[in-house]
């Protein structure tokens, strides 16, 4: 096993994929600097810098994929998808159906997401539930370097559109760029196991839509993804001192959602807390509640620790609006009392 940082793993897996498949290319703003190593290896035909024109280059990515290429379109921050959502909402997601199942769109959208570094409400959203709401889109959110590399390969190998979200607290270059800016006197709550870790000697993809049990337990299931799984693991450690045994499920994929893993775990623990950095209402956490209700897994205790408001600029308020360990602990203890 070798050790890599989160972003390093993504780049390493991407290099591997681009070396083996000449149809893969990248396109987006500032990729000549953001992906300079890929530019150095593959040249500017395959690492294409664009103007600030997301609606055009994402829309173009859709048809480039339909023409047989394997585009990876970069949207700098998922918040900026607002200006280009049509390409996903009305095109990438629907063409397979409209064509009677005859024309697929093997597109990857690579984008950064998430908060915790003081950048305010237009730069720190997660939005994965919002995207997964659209039938025909797959959405994946890795939580550690090994998954980051392997899931990127899954996204690239998929014959259908996949949104791949890298959290800015895990990807060191994003945090340096948007958070620290080279300063040594600011620090953020970066989960170490997410930022750096062992990765396979040889990159291989993981199955699409499969969750991962990070910790087994009997009393409560914490269902999460991205940076929040690390908050869950920290909470689980603390709760174990109170003799509360916690299972932590890393969903990896918002869509397709691993229903089976959710049902199996909750059938055992009968208590579940969804810890989701995305917005609470009408999203992933509600979807999980619906699945459990539909499967008649009752009686259970259900709760959620999610983002309920516009993310405030104030760091202290921000830390409380985003899911954190204390909020998880408070709810878990309430369940067991």
């Amino acid at each position: 096993m070798r050790k890599m940082e989160f972003a390093e793993a993504i780049e390493s897996a991407l290099k591997h994929a681009m070396t083996n498949d000449p149809d893969i290319f990248l396109m987006g703003e500032d990729v000549h600097t953001l992906r300079i190593n890929l530019l150095a290896q593959f040249g500017k035909e395959r690492v294409i810098s664009t103007s600030i024109s997301e609606s055009a280059f994402l829309g173009a990515g859709v048809t480039a994929a339909m023409a047989g290429l394997r585009p990876i379109i970069e949207i700098m921050l998922i918040d900026f998808i607002g200006v280009a959502i049509d390409a996903l909402l009305n095109h990438a997601s629907k063409i397979l159906t409209f064509s009677g199942g005859k024309w697929n769109v093997p597109l990857v959208v690579r984008t950064s997401c998430g908060g915790g570094y003081g950048d305010g409400g237009q730069h720190e959203q997660s939005l994965w539930g919002w995207l997964a709401h659209i039938p025909g889109l797959h959405v994946v959110v890795p939580s550690n370097p090994s998954d980051a590399g392997q899931l990127l390969l899954s996204a690239i190998e998929s014959d259908h559109p996949v949104i791949y979200l890298e959290h800015k607290l895990l990807a060191d270059y994003w945090l340096d760029y948007m958070g620290t800016g080279g300063r040594e006197n600011v620090s953020f709550d970066v989960p170490e196991k997410g930022a750096i870790g062992e990765v396979p000697e040889k990159w291989e993809s993981l199955p699409i839509g499969k969750a991962n049990i990070l910790r087994e337990g009997d009393d409560i299931t914490l269902i999460s993804l991205g940076v929040s799984v690390h908050r869950c693991l920290e909470a689980a450690n603390i709760l174990s001192e109170d003799e509360i045994s916690v299972e932590v499920l890393d969903l990896r994929w918002v869509s397709p959602l691993d229903k089976e893993a959710i049902i199996t775990s909750v059938s055992k623990t009968k208590r579940v807390i969804v810890v989701d950095e995305d917005y609470m209402r009408f999203g992933l956490s509600g979807e999980i509640a619906a699945i459990l209700a539909e499967e008649n897994i009752s009686p259970i205790q259900f709760g959620r620790v999610c983002t309920e408001h516009t993310i405030p600029f104030n760091r202290h308020l921000e830390d409380n609006v985003l899911p954190n360990v204390n909020r998880i602990l408070a709810l878990a203890r309430k369940f067991k009392s």
Binding site: G118, D119, G120, G121, Q122, H123, P312, F313, L317
Partner: peptide
């Protein structure tokens, strides 16, 4: 100005 909720970009 914005109760600390906006920040310089908002």
């Amino acid at each position: 100005l914005c109760s600390g909720l906006g920040g310089h970009m908002h």
